[in-house]
C-alpha cells in the first residue's frame, strides 16, 4: 500500500468514527467534539486531494469558528445530557433502514459514475489560481456572499438581543 492510501484509510476511519460518535454521544459537547474530529479528518483528505487552501479554510472557518460558536452556545445554555424521549416508531423502523438505504444508493451511483474517471494526478492546487478564479469568474457570487454575511450578522444581533 502506498503512503497515500494508508493516509486515506486512516483519515476515512477518523471521519466515519467521528460521525458515528456524533450520533451515539448523549451530551451535545461530546457530539460537537466528534464533529470537530470529522472536520479535521476532512481537512486532511482535502490535503490528500491537493486542495491546500480549502483544507486550511476548512479548519479555520469550520473547526475554528463555527464549531467554537456551537461549543460556546452549548456552554452558555449549560445544555445537559440529551433527554431520552420516546423516539417515534417511524424514525426507528423506517428512518434507520431508509438512512442506510440512502447511503448505499448514493455510494453506488456516485462511485459507479466516477469509477471510470481516472484521477488527474497533479501537484497541489496553487492558491493563486483559486484566487484568480474567485475574483474574476465568480466575483458576483463572491460579492453576494458578503451581503449574505452582513444580513446574517444583523439577523443574529436582532434575534439574540434581550428584550428590555
Amino acid at each position: 500500500m502506498s503512503l497515500e492510501l494508508v493516509l486515506f484509510f486512516v483519515l476515512a476511519a477518523m471521519a466515519i468514527g467521528g460521525a458515528v460518535s456524533l450520533i451515539l454521544q448523549r451530551h451535545p459537547i461530546h457530539s460537537a467534539l466528534s464533529l470537530i474530529v470529522v472536520m479535521v479528518a476532512l481537512a486532511g483528505l482535502y490535503l490528500l486531494l491537493g486542495a491546500e487552501f480549502i483544507a486550511a479554510v476548512q479548519i479555520i472557518v469550520y473547526a475554528g469558528a463555527i464549531m467554537v460558536l456551537f461549543v460556546f452556545v452549548i456552554m452558555l445554555l449549560n445544555a445537559g445530557v440529551e433527554a431520552r424521549t420516546n423516539v417515534s416508531r417511524m424514525a426507528r423502523y423506517v428512518g434507520l433502514p431508509l438512512g442506510f438505504f440512502l447511503t448505499v444508493e448514493l455510494a453506488y451511483w456516485i462511485a459507479g459514475g466516477a469509477g471510470r474517471q481516472a484521477p488527474v494526478s497533479a501537484g497541489p492546487t496553487p492558491t493563486r489560481e483559486l484566487a484568480r478564479m474567485l475574483f474574476r469568474e465568480f466575483v458576483f457570487p463572491f460579492e453576494l456572499t458578503s451581503i449574505l454575511i452582513l444580513i446574517a450578522i444583523l439577523g443574529a444581533v436582532v434575534l439574540a438581543k434581550k428584550e428590555t
Binding site: 491546500e52 486550511a56 479548519i59
Partner: peptide, 11 residues
C-alpha cells in the same frame, strides 16, 4: 494559513 488554522483550534 496553516499556522492560523492551528492557532484557531487553540480556543
Amino acid at each position: 494559513l496553516f499556522l492560523f488554522a492551528i492557532t484557531s483550534l487553540g480556543v
